[in-house]
Design a protein around this nucleic acid. Structure first.
Length: 469
RNA sequence: GGUGGGGUGGCAGAGCGGUUGAAUGCGCCAGACUUGAAAUCUGGUUGUGGCAACAGUCACACGGGGGUUCGAAUCCCCCCCCCACCGCCA
């Protein structure tokens, strides 16, 4: 593996493709409500290439002169040491003349070099902001309100089109009430320790979380053949940029300013295990025969929730720290294969939710709801009886299809016989995020007497326990 | 935290001011031999970018950035990373 080097700026997006298809990228940016100035980027890029071509020609001249003059300079310098008087002065003049030739070129080269240095920061900043255009089959829309439902599923014993009470014969309590009476979580002490949006999970609350995570993790490893990995959650900025979370998502991540303490480098806390998993092969050239790489991790996730002030302030829905089982697939650059994996990764989650017997629906996210790095995204939402009035679906999973956008930034490639080195494709999807997933579990499995039945598949992870409370 | 040693092509590992984009070995690809395979032999095999895009051609890159020099993988400065030993420690 190469030692850590900064990503190559040209690897941020496929610049060649952008030059050939500017309208495609402009339309893509517009549909994602990005205001990146692609025309400006193209202008600067053209200037840069022109300057580069001129500079390279000068360099080539310089190299020719060097090869001719170099040995002569060496000889003259030797002769000067031995000579004296008029002879010495003459030789010195010759030497100066020889040296002057490449020196003239050098100053011209330097001018181009300075021009390039002046252009590059703006070009790079623009390049980093160009989003991956959404796929043509992604519905155009402004935000989450324009997302399109794909399908629903519910266990035979629950019909989400009817109220909870009609299904179960009593009024649903919210998970906030349930965790309070059953002593599964402690918000006051969480806030005392960590501030707003912090919490403790206690007793069977903690145990239930461990059970879901372990069930989800084991399913991915044992049933679907994913490779289990434990990854850093404290990473360098390059990793955040490479995975596509920065620069746009910078405000969302906790920043550890180690450089201000005089040592090392700054670090950021990751908001998802995806960062660690995708970072594994940063700056590597992989063997095509190793594909697909299927990684799964469980990690603590940190999110500042900047811009979400006042939203979902109560309960376990939106918090700063949580646990998540995440799946990631890296594969060869093939659209059909990418699409196929996307479907598979979603089906793994459906299998899991069906095993847990939680009603859910699949949402095709519209263009306005996609992040910069997604060509396509499908959200999975679980039914949460206490949300809104009479229950609502709430997001619990998100499955992204990224083409080569992320691998390009991370510089992850493979050798392909006829096409040389090729940038890989990557995909990711949540497997289970807790405690958010505890909301539908607790609320759906609550009983009229205030107890909560433990879902069958989780009982082996709860010491056989069937009921909480 | 202290002291010392290092970062070179897919991997291992030479080179330590000029013709070295880089020896050698491994791996990989093609060919020869073979009924086939192995072994052996021969040749090929870094990446990125610009221009042309059939072939090609030019430039840049020896952790990253800057400097010295006519010329740097080789010398100097800053940064990042790794390793060894000591100290501390979940």
């Amino acid at each position: 593996m190469p030692a850590f080097g900064f990503y190559h700026p040209a690897l941020m997006i496929d610049l060649k493709h952008l030059r050939d298809n500017p309208e495609h990228y402009k339309l893509g940016a517009a549909r994602k409500a990005s205001n990146v100035d692609i025309d400006r980027l193209l202008t600067l890029d053209a200037q840069k290439r022109q300057s580069m071509t001129e500079m390279e020609n000068l360099r080539a001249q310089q190299r020719v002169i060097e090869k001719e003059a170099g040995p002569q300079i060496g000889k003259l310098a030797g002769a000067i040491k031995k000579a004296d008087g008029a002879e010495k002065a003459k030789l010195e003049a010759e030497l100066e003349a020889l040296k002057a030739k490449p020196a003239a070129l050098k100053s011209q080269i330097q001018q181009h070099d300075e021009r390039l240095a002046a252009l590059e920061p703006e070009i790079n900043a623009l390049l980093l902001q160009v989003p991956l255009p959404p796929d043509a089959d992604v519905p155009v829309g402004k935000g989450s309100e324009d997302n399109v439902e794909i399908r629903r599923w519910a266990p035979s014993w629950f019909d989400p089109s009817k109220a909870f009470e009609a299904n179960k014969g009593f009024k649903a309590k919210s998970h906030i009430d349930l965790v309070s009476t059953l002593k599964l979580a402690d918000f006051e002490r969480g806030v005392k320790l960590g501030g707003t949006r912090h919490y403790l999970l206690t007793g069977d609350g903690m145990r239930l979380q461990q059970a879901v995570l372990r069930f989800a993790f084991d399913t991915m490893i044992e049933k679907h053949g994913f490779t289990p990995v434990y990854v850093p959650v404290i990473v360098r900025e390059e990793t955040m940029i490479g995975t596509g979370f920065f620069p746009q998502g910078r405000e969302q991540a906790y920043h550890i300013e180690e450089s201000k303490r005089g040592g090392g480098h700054d670090a950021f806390l990751t908001g998802t295990g995806e960062v660690g998993l995708m970072g594994i092969h940063m700056n590597e050239i992989l063997d095509e025969s190793s594909f697909p790489l299927k990684y799964c991790t469980v990690s603590t996730c940190f999110r500042r929730e900047a811009g979400a002030a006042g939203k979902d302030t109560a309960g376990l829905y939106r918090i700063h720290q949580f646990e998540k089982v995440e799946q990631v697939v890296i594969t060869r650059a093939d659209e059909a294969e990418s699409r196929d994996w996307h479907k598979k990764m979603i089906s793994y989650v459906e299998g899991l939710l069906q095993a847990l017997e939680l009603p859910y629906r699949l949402l095709q996210c519209c263009t306005g709801d996609l992040g910069p790095k997604n060509a396509d995204m499908v959200d999975i939402e679980c039914w949460m009886p206490s949300r809104g009035t009479g229950g609502e679906y709430g997001e619990t999973h998100s499955a992204s299809r990224l083409y080569d956008y992320q691998c390009r930034r991370l510089n992850i490639r493979y050798r392909s016989g006829d096409k040389g080195t090729v940038v890989c494709h990557s995909l990711n999807n949540t497997v289970a995020a807790s405690p958010r997933i505890l909301i539908p579990i607790l609320e759906m499995y609550q009983n009229i007497d205030g107890t909560v039945t433990v879902p069958k598949v989780l009982r082996p992870y709860m010491g056989g326990k069937e009921k909480i409370g």
